[in-house]
């Protein structure tokens, strides 16, 4: 066991209060990750003096929308733009909105779609 990792399940509406709490306790924003399961699983990861805190919430696959935390953590705009560009999650109230131009990729929200496997020549 490398370290103890605490995960708190929260509802999307509670996000703002939870994040404000974390900010008040002196936590540093480590990452916002998204995982596509039957729903979108959002992980807001924080760290304070090497103690780990993770807030997890679920969003539906259809029309996912979440309020931005950039009012609390200014630096969250990179992660939130990434969520929008790669997963197609709509973020409201973001401080620097790239409008889908943060990643210059051809496809819209490639990670949010179901994957199609292309066969390569010489490989079944």
């Amino acid at each position: 066991m490398i370290e103890k990792q605490e995960t708190v399940e929260i509802k999307p509406e509670e996000l703002q209060t939870k994040v404000t709490e974390a900010m008040a306790k002196g936590y540093r924003l480590v990452a916002i990750s998204c995982t596509k399961l039957d729903y979108f699983q959002l992980d807001y990861t924080f760290d304070c003096n090497l103690s780990f805190l993770n807030c997890r919430l679920k969003l539906p696959l259809v029309n996912p929308e979440i309020k931005s935390i950039t009012d609390i953590y200014w630096s969250a705009f990179t992660y939130e733009n990434e969520l929008h560009d790669l997963f197609g999650i709509k973020i409201t109230g973001i401080n620097i909105d790239f409008g889908g131009k943060f990643y210059k990729i051809k496809e819209v929200a490639p990670f949010g779609k179901s994957i199609t496997i292309k066969t390569v020549e010489g490989k079944a």
Binding site: I96, F102, Y103, K104, I105, P110, I115
Partner: peptide, 18 residues
């Protein structure tokens, strides 16, 4: 300053699923 990324995005994260 406005940074923008994405010139070398290769989607390696997605490769893990296959």
């Amino acid at each position: 300053v406005i940074p923008s990324l994405g010139f070398v995005h290769r989607g390696l994260e997605l490769l893990v699923t296959r």
